[in-house]
Design a protein around this nucleic acid. Structure first.
Lengths: 237, 237
DNA sequence: GACACTCTTTGCGCTGGGACAAACAAATGG
DNA sequence: CCATTTGTTTGTCCCAGCGCAAAGAGTGTC
């Protein structure tokens, strides 16, 4: 499936013109290249797959790639367009899933490892702190990614459902019958989270209330039928 | 404007129960706390402001905060809800603007510096590489943030305009008269970037073409009146 | 208890843009 | 050169959800 042809000898000139490396000394570039390998992709081919195990970053030297997410309903959303000179495939390193990427044009990348010596020393010495820090960034990125996909493909009702579930999950609690958002939240707030209006949110909650799915009041929302809500949130539009 | 009351003596017990720190030795926690200061915020107050110069991260120990973006038209979009145990205010450190945050409930945070010694050594030694790496992550986060805001507040036409401009800017080229997207792009692609449909994209481009703003063909789009496009993209809903 | 706020609900009309359908046009390939 | 595939345009219909407007319902304060 991977259609790249690894190249054997990597020349320093590959990197000297790419901004992130241009300031480095030759010695440092060599150190990086010793652990790197270069790949070429032709237009339209797969750069990497969903969830692929990446112990490395990729730096795009030439061309464009796009990262794509596919909804449960089969719709595509282009999550990112990455031009040359940027890193990609970093999600895994931040503790999260990577999504499939394809080459928009013929492209060339190199796979890099971090300059390892100091990095490992750093992570080891401050063990929990460093890795948890990265996890935070990873969570943040993953969450934004999800919101983009939702906004692109889902109806307002589903987005509201997702938002409620997210607010509960975020606190680390289980979504259970009778669970309440544990801080005051207004219809206005919810609308600002979902990209809707307070009127529409109000109507939606009213409808849910009639079906017994939630119970809500002023600045307060309690989920009565979490399972129903999950079904609704995951319905394929 | 900042309404926090700094606390003087920081006790280790503050951190020992917070996941990212729980694995650390007392020695390490002390080292972190020596450079940290704690702050309390009451409900609804400002945690930090737009563009505030943050040489530190903040770790939320208790409560909830939200990060808010305000559109040129004055609409609010809730960009993030942050529960306790997570870092916030990291955007600046990743090389990008921070957005204002307020406390949703009474909240407590501590301001941290990175464990500095090794970190500085790391960044210094690999100068360009490390900082540019962070820039990549920062750019990615900022871009996603923008897309969320756009999806929440803008009409399809504006989002298409923004997407085109982004594709051009991303390549590092100036947006100029007659500039062309330098790789083949279909209506379908554009629709997947903007969360629309290929039909709507086609109609929109047709309309623009009639006004002389763009010239487009099969898998090709050229911007004729970049200024018009910018105006359109920035129009307040 | 009365007044002022703030938050929520509901009705109604209107429209952006999605769904469906059907040509049309440009590439590709035998 | 004709056939097929891939991408684009356009028409028609229709509805989710926004905007506007106005009336409840809680909360806080004097």
């Amino acid at each position: 499936m991977r259609n790249a042809r690894p190249q054997s000898r990597l020349d320093e000139s590959l990197l000297t013109n790419v901004p992130p490396f241009s300031k480095l000394e030759t010695r440092q570039i060599r150190e990086i290249l010793d652990l790197a390998s270069s790949r070429r992709y032709s237009e339209g081919t797969t750069v990497f797959q969903e969830g692929e195990d990446a112990d490395r970053f990729f730096m795009l030297l030439d061309g464009y790639i796009r990262v794509v997410r596919i909804t449960p309903g089969g719709e595509q959303v282009i999550a990112l367009h990455i031009p040359s000179g940027q890193l990609f495939g970093i999600a895994k390193a931040l503790g999260h899933t990577t999504y499939p990427a394809t080459a928009v044009t013929a492209a060339e990348s190199i796979a890099l490892s971090w300059p390892t010596r100091l990095w490992e020393q750093f992570v080891t010495e401050y063990d929990g702190f460093a890795s948890e820090t990265y996890k935070t960034v990873g969570i943040r990125v993953a969450e934004m990614n999800n919101r983009i996909m939702e906004m692109a493909t889902q109806q307002v009702e589903q987005r509201i459902a997702k938002s409620l579930l997210r607010l509960i999950n975020q606190t680390g609690r289980k979504v259970a019958t009778g669970i309440e958002i544990d801080f005051p939240i207004t219809r206005q707030d919810l609308s600002e989270m979902t990209g809707s209006t307070l009127h529409t949110v109000s109507r939606t909650l009213s409808a849910w209330e009639k079906q017994g799915m939630v119970s809500s009041g002023r600045k307060r929302i309690t989920v009565c039928e979490p399972h129903e809500l999950v079904l609704l949130a995951e319905a394929t539009g």
